[in-house]
């Protein structure tokens, strides 16, 4: 016996109505929440940059950003200059932190010039050069903000990811991994860019050797770790020419 809901015409009308209702509901939600979400993302970028240069609310063991109500003021207090490096020429731009690294990478792939944002911060008389980098983990994007001194020695780093496995690759945003980078050299002994390798079996779990260009890998997160290595070698190397000009 056929009832009303089995008819083709009913099915088609139901499908159309459902798509219209759900579609407009989702569009409405997305459109009305967009400004708030964008504001959250902007503040998060500022928090990330400040975190890398050591302006954070870290307590023992866990990584904490400074709170969102303070971040705007702190950002203008600590970040002295925002640069955009394009074709080797650095110019100031106070909106540089809004540059989307992903879009710049796509531009570079299609042969256009890539804009490299660099943030110069000062804290306790020390100058920090903070660069955003981006790469691929196991499942999705990973990115980082790396603070360096003028010799490209890492002063702090903040890693994040979109969808790495909880408990494994997702641990790149844990203190025990990020803090290993502090003090690590990006250049080799003769001053050439070497990067930092996330190494299995470097026999240095406490990371005492800071000039070996290696940090200890996370067990069970090989591909995420390799992604971190590749991201550092590829993206931070682009900043090397700028650091060479600082030496002159």
């Amino acid at each position: 016996m056929e009832n009303r809901t089995d008819k083709n015409s009913y099915t088609i009308i139901f499908a159309i109505a459902m798509v219209l209702v759900v579609g407009s509901l989702l569009a409405f939600t997305a459109a009305s929440l967009k400004p708030t979400i964008a504001e959250n993302e902007r503040m998060e970028k500022q928090q990330n940059i400040l975190y890398a240069m050591g302006v954070n609310d870290n307590d023992e063991g866990s990584a904490n950003f400074i709170s969102t109500d303070k971040v705007g003021d702190e950002f203008s207090k600590y970040i002295k200059k925002q640069l955009v490096i394009e074709n080797g020429i650095a110019s100031e731009n106070d909106q540089a932190y809004l540059i989307d690294v992903k879009k710049e990478q796509t531009k570079a792939k299609s042969g256009e010039a890539r804009r490299l944002p660099l943030f110069i911060g000062e804290k306790d008389g020390k100058t920090f050069y903070i660069a955003p980098i981006r790469g691929k983990g196991l499942w999705d994007a990973i990115w980082a903000y790396v603070a360096m001194d003028e010799n490209m020695v890492v002063q702090g780093a903040y890693f994040d990811h979109k969808g790495e496995t909880p408990g494994l690759g997702a641990n790149i945003k844990q203190r025990f991994f990020m803090d290993d980078f502090i003090g690590e050299h990006l250049l080799d002994a003769s001053g050439n860019f070497k990067g930092i390798t996330v190494a299995k079996g470097n026999a240095d779990p406490k990371n005492l050797d800071k000039t070996d260009n290696e940090v200890d890998a996370i067990a069970g997160a090989t591909i995420t770790g390799d992604g971190v290595t590749a991201m550092i070698k590829k993206d931070l190397k682009l900043y090397w020419p700028y650091f060479k000009t600082l030496k002159k």
Binding site: T5, T11, F14, M18
Partner: peptide, 12 residues
């Protein structure tokens, strides 16, 4: 449940 067409219920 009473208005979902059975042919496309999984999609719904």
């Amino acid at each position: 449940r009473n208005i979902i067409p059975s042919k496309i219920r999984i999609i719904v």
